[in-house]
Design a binder for these strands. Structure first.
Lengths: 247, 247
DNA sequence: GTTGACCCTTACGATGCGTCATAGTTTACA
DNA sequence: TGTAAACTATGACGCATCGTAAGGGTCAAC
């Protein structure tokens, strides 16, 4: 049953997230299912569960869902950095709770005549959260992306993801040619144009750093290889390097 | 400035609660100000701040505001019991956060290949919260009260509180007479009828236990004495005892 | 082929405020 | 004494995040 993907019901049982929530997360493009049956049933795979886990961590910290979507969908999402920040934020929260517990205990003992509102304060948390968000959104391109993606539906994100995967599939098809062959360079330009058209203005500089990520052997490489076959990520990276060097 | 009551702005600065929130809490009858200026400005006193503190503790635990209102407005609200439960709930929350922190750390170290949704689970918390709420709402009269008060506005609660205080004021006026004098007994009946009409069906049994609370020297006594003069609470308690014994 | 357990979409509702808009009030100071 | 600045009020609208119900397909089993 896991080989073919889990239905909403199964995901709900495994994760505790309600079916309605899964449907909603699909609609807003936060967690699109891996596939659909012919009848339109949503089917989720393990990767979706990982993504859901990430989402839940952000949600725990009361990030708006749209921001979560923007953060974890960005082309250079750094999971480890995000986790480090989440740990920090969760810890601040725990400490604040400890303060509240202490306050409640004092109130209980003294009969409640004490007034203290500092314990409720969320300044430190908010501060850190603001700084963290600032880090994620520090580039101009990303702010542009956030703006543009504000009103996207699940359909939008899904179609964009599909188009990009298609581009990578095409990279895979030409991976026996030279990375600086005209066809490969044209394909790089196609990628750049598509990103600029649908996501954010993709300068050569940004393109170069995307290329880095694609060839680094991490998740990006994995995903691209899944679409274009083994080596597609490395090939795309090489083509992008060539494109940025000479064109 | 505290002698005459604080404005929304001052309360907001002292507590961190926004002005808009204070206005809203007034509108829904959760935190009515102690007084108003002629121009209609809200004026809060220290007692209101204590109530606000209580409210914030409940809110921290994500109790719906209407429930908070129902709980802390009920005629036999036990602050100490509430605090004990809040401590317990806050502790459960803290422990859950610790679990999430541990999960995030593992994810960070292992590269995120682990799937664990038990850490997000809120079952224990919800369980305890449900039991706690059950305790607060365990009597038939209270459930009725909750039902009836669902759609009250701030105006409703304020007018009811005012009417009841008026009744206690009248108790205070007759406190040099015997507690079983016809006037006093009639006044008790007036109280019982008013509560039955506007809050919940006030049986003799409930009335008797309310009388206990009024004469116990606690907050109720204090509040009643504030309306009817020193000794008004004790007098009302005695009258209620007389009424329940013979009528 | 019917039952029962699933699934879909659409639409409406509720909570807890933020955010104007519009207008009256109070305070400080020139 | 006037007036600007800072405060207050109410009311309307908006918003995120789902719950809930309505109305209706899908699928496995018996």
């Amino acid at each position: 049953m896991e080989g073919k993907g889990m239905t909403v019901h199964e995901v709900s049982k495994r994760t505790g997230v309600s079916i309605r929530t899964l449907q909603y997360y699909d609609r807003i493009g936060l967690l699109p299912p891996a596939a659909h049956t012919e009848a339109g049933y949503r089917l989720y795979d393990e990767a979706a569960l990982e993504r859901l886990q990430q989402i839940l961590l952000f949600r725990e910290l009361e990030f708006p869902l749209r921001e979560i979507r923007a953060i974890i969908s960005r082309p250079d999402f750094d999971r480890e950095k995000a986790l480090a920040q989440q740990i920090e934020l969760l810890t601040l929260r725990r400490d604040r709770l400890n303060g509240l517990i202490r306050l409640a205990e004092e109130l209980k003992e003294t009969g409640g005549r004490k007034l203290d509102f500092k314990a409720f304060d969320t300044e430190k948390m908010d501060d850190y959260a603001r700084r963290a968000k600032a880090q994620w959104g520090e580039t101009e391109a990303y702010r542009e992306y956030e703006q543009r993606s504000r009103n996207w539906t699940g359909e939008d994100t899904r179609s964009i993801a599909g188009e990009i995967m298609e581009i990578f599939r095409e990279f895979g098809e030409m991976k026996d040619q030279a990375p600086d062959s005209p066809r490969a360079l044209a394909q790089v330009r196609k990628l750049q144009d598509y990103i600029s058209a649908r996501m954010y203005t993709c300068t050569d500089e940004i393109l170069a750093s995307l290329g880095e990520a694609y060839g680094s052997g991490g998740e990006f490489t994995k995903n691209i290889d899944a679409a274009g076959g083994p080596g597609a990520g490395a090939f795309a990276a090489a083509a992008i390097r060539a494109y940025c060097r000479k064109d």
